[in-house]
Computed example of a mutant assay.
Amino acid sequence: MSFKHGVVITGLIGSGKSTVCALLKERGYKIICADSIAHEILELNSSKVAELFGAQLLSGSKVDRKALGAIVFANPSAKKSLEELLHPLINERICFLSNELERTGKLYFVDIPLFFESGGRAKYDFAASLLVYAPKELCLKRILRRDKADETSANARINSQMDIEKKRALADFVLENTSDLASLEHDLRAIIEQIKTKMSLLDA
Rank of each mutant, 00 (worst) to 15 (best):
N45M: 01
K48M: 05
L52E: 00
L52M: 05
F53M: 00
F53N: 00
G54S: 02
A55I: 06
Q56H: 14
L58T: 01
K62V: 04
K62A: 07
A67D: 01
L68M: 11
L68V: 05
A70T: 04
P76F: 06
P76L: 04
K79A: 08
K80I: 10
E84N: 13
L85W: 02
L85H: 07
L86P: 00
E92K: 13
I94Q: 03
C95E: 13
L97T: 00
S98R: 04
S98L: 04
N99F: 03
E102V: 06
E102M: 05
R103I: 12
R103C: 09
T104Y: 11
G105F: 10
Y108E: 10
V110Y: 04
D111V: 07
P113K: 10
G119D: 12
G120R: 00
R121A: 08
A122E: 15
A122Y: 08
K123H: 11
Y124S: 08
A128E: 09
S129F: 06
S129T: 15
L130F: 10
L130Y: 03
V132N: 11
L138S: 09
L138K: 13
C139D: 03
C139N: 08
C139Q: 09
L144F: 11
L144W: 08
R145G: 08
K148G: 12
E151V: 15
A156F: 02
A156I: 05
I158V: 13
N159I: 06
N159W: 12
S160V: 14
M162K: 11
M162P: 09
E165C: 04
K166W: 03
